[in-house]
Design a protein around this nucleic acid. Sequence first.
DNA 1: CGCCCCATGTAAGACGTTACATGATTGA
DNA 2: TCAATCATGTAACGTCTTACATGGGGCG
Lengths: 186, 186
Amino acid sequence: MRNISPLGYALLGLLQQNPASGYDLRKIFASTSMKTYSDSPGAIYPALRRLEKQGLIRGTIEEGNGLRRRQVFHLTAKGLGELKKWIRLPIGRDDLASGLKMVMLRFAFSERAIGPFASLEILKSMETALGPHVQDLEAKLEEIRPVSPTSGRLALECGIRSYESLLQWTGYAISIYENQLKGGRS
Amino acid sequence: MRNISPLGYALLGLLQQNPASGYDLRKIFASTSMKTYSDSPGAIYPALRRLEKQGLIRGTIEEGNGLRRRQVFHLTAKGLGELKKWIRLPIGRDDLASGLKMVMLRFAFSERAIGPFASLEILKSMETALGPHVQDLEAKLEEIRPVSPTSGRLALECGIRSYESLLQWTGYAISIYENQLKGGRS
DNA sequence: CGCCCCATGTAAGACGTTACATGATTGA
DNA sequence: TCAATCATGTAACGTCTTACATGGGGCG
């Protein structure tokens, strides 16, 4: 079986939350800050058909409602399995370096798809991966300091700061989940 | 004339700093935190040839040094013009939403390619674009708070925090440039 | 009737990934 | 001589972007 594109995972996650048509999904992408995963029909409809061909989602044509034919997709058991498997992948250094988008997407979907314990797991593995990563970047900063122009150095500092802020966020998010899981519901 | 891919701009920026061969560029990508712009020969060599076909770079074969033939590329005047034009593009909201990578790349190259005033310009336009963007995200947070699971809300909060940290960084970077430009050199 | 929104799609083209191929040189 | 490194490339494949096509329905 072929693998699933980033857009494919975004679609799986959204369909796990609610069955929806291609048009609905497009609107969700366009309205929320998920435009990054493409909001064009030329990407979404083919992606949906790929997922259907892989047996991860199934579309049922909904007609007779007066409107034009509309195909509503929902996750299959296999699709839910793939989604869970993807969410539970361990988080390594490369996941941090290659943009946080996919990691955050996994985290965002984790609670509904698996449960709060899975969300907590993701946060903890992010936290442990972040420390060494920040240290590496700081070493690189010292390395380029003599040879790089100010703007190059500042750009790297910007990256370091953003990972530090991410680290703070993980701490905050972990404490929220631990309170929620230990104590009562909010 | 066709437009230039992200990888193309990364190559132009690196070649403006120093002439280099495809192999050199690959090593730079692999060693620094620029792996995001692909480190595979199947991407770099075709990209270089596209740039050459557009007249933005020119490669000179360097032979007789004992090693195997090596093609060293350098920027043409036209290439430098394109690079400057790209760096000077105004920064809008979409640039922030669609990942900071390209913006930071433009900033990192700005000082060598144009000068510190251009770097300062970029920082200032980032600063003015960031305020409204953060406010938008905060509005969206209030909107989804009742309907979204904790993990979805936290993911959005993470994005907001990262933009806030970016805003702090712009202030810091602006002050550095202003000192450098007003006062003496560091 | 004309226009805009719903809802789905297709076709062409550009780009990157993966994997493989090639050949020359250096060092063990 | 064998392996590793230097240095360049190619071919297949998948995916996204852009732009266009289609047709029903509501509305002025």
